[in-house]
Design a protein around this nucleic acid. Structure first.
Lengths: 219, 219
DNA sequence: TAATATTTTTAGGTAAGTCTAAAAATTATT
DNA sequence: AATAATTTTTAGACTTACCTAAAAATATTA
């Protein structure tokens, strides 16, 4: 049976939340990202659990099963490939593509995605620097990670950026974010996901989530 | 308020049916193409009528309002542009793209469609020879029409084909369908849309809808 | 650890879009 | 023109994916 749009969205969001923690994912966290109420999330988790896509125990949060992870990786693959298409071929800016890719990721045709992959020359990362899973759901090891995905307390070095717009690069200069700088995340503010960041042992400065996402770090 | 997938499908199908007749469109005809039951179609027609997309009188069939036609043309535009993309850029064959374009036509982004249009060099017709409406819903006058869209009883001359696969052209030769031949549709069989066709005053022969669609005729 | 706060679930309800079965309207046939 | 056949509509029901309000479980705090 085909997966509905709603189900695909839940899978993708649980996957995204799982990337940044080893804990079980809470109902509320999912509710926030899906923009649904917690009660609706509970409903859906029960259904997805019956289908074997997640391991779910009442009140204990949820994890993707290996089948669920496979499905989620497929959606992530489609989303990120479409983002590359929109930026590289359609001339969108990196910050305009997410909403459209949210729609395109639900198009059902393996053949289309394979052809798109070839058409784009088998990109290994999307316009934001996130890795693109291959057909088998394997995420390529890029050797770097977005600053936004770094765990709190671990240090790493700035090795690149995920976009090269003039305004973005100007901002990095202003913030003293240079190639090779040593970065350590002190805190992430839940409200806007802004990041308190230590640069080369200086006192922490605050940067936005948007900036953090576009800074690539090697640990 | 956004149009749902279901509504877009109804609009497109009523539009398609309206192209080949001046009569009001019957509930059953719509039911057949949407693959729904007549009762469901009645439901939807009532809703669409309330929204002002169709003129609908119980038991009397339905016509698109000018607003409904505008909406339908927009969907048709998207469908046909995506078909061009799939064939010209992704390397699909003309006969493999319909199902995927059925999905892509629902992507909501005027900007994307305009960029796609430019990327494809503003094509005037899709891989089947059907004209692509412009941004304003104007269908370009191509100077020819698919044989499948010719009215019964009117004669025209074969001026081209909408595809050039070897098997298709071989079949045309076998059927005696040559450039310049005078063609007149005698009958269209509702069951499979196959066409009884007179070629140069010879006794009628039967050709499939697929063939008819790919034969271009100037009247 | 008892009380309080928070999170999560349950129960019951809604809208969209479909269905079946039966009734009503229209069309065709004798 | 009456009857029969067909088409269309109505009535009532189902599923999906959501909701609100209240109850239950878990977590936090005094």
């Amino acid at each position: 049976m085909a997966i509905s749009f709603a189900e695909e969205n839940y899978l993708k969001i649980i996957f995204r939340l799982s990337e940044s923690t080893k804990e079980d994912i809470s109902t509320n966290a999912i509710a926030e990202l899906t923009q649904n109420k917690a009660a609706s999330v509970t409903d859906m988790l029960r259904k997805m659990s019956e289908k074997g896509w997640v391991n779910y125990q009442k009140y204990q949060g949820v994890r993707l099963s290996s089948l669920g992870e496979k499905l989620a990786l497929d959606i992530v693959r489609k989303h990120r490939l479409w983002e590359v298409f929109l930026v590289k071929k359609m001339g969108f800016n990196w910050d305009e593509v997410h909403e459209i890719a949210e729609q395109l990721e639900h198009i059902e045709s393996e053949e289309l995605i394979d052809k798109l992959d070839a058409f784009l020359d088998y990109p290994r990362s999307d316009p934001h620097g996130d890795p693109i899973p291959n057909k088998d759901g394997i995420l390529p090891q890029l050797g770097y990670v977005s600053l936004a995905n770094m765990p709190i307390g671990k240090a790493g070095n700035l090795v690149g950026v995920a976009q090269d717009s003039a305004v973005f690069l100007q901002l990095l200069t202003k913030l003293n974010l240079r190639l090779g700088a040593t970065l350590e995340i002190i805190e992430i503010n839940a409200f806007d996901l802004s990041v308190s960041l230590r640069i080369d042992n200086n006192p922490p400065v605050l940067i936005s989530h948007e900036v953090a996402k576009n800074v690539l770090v090697k640990r």
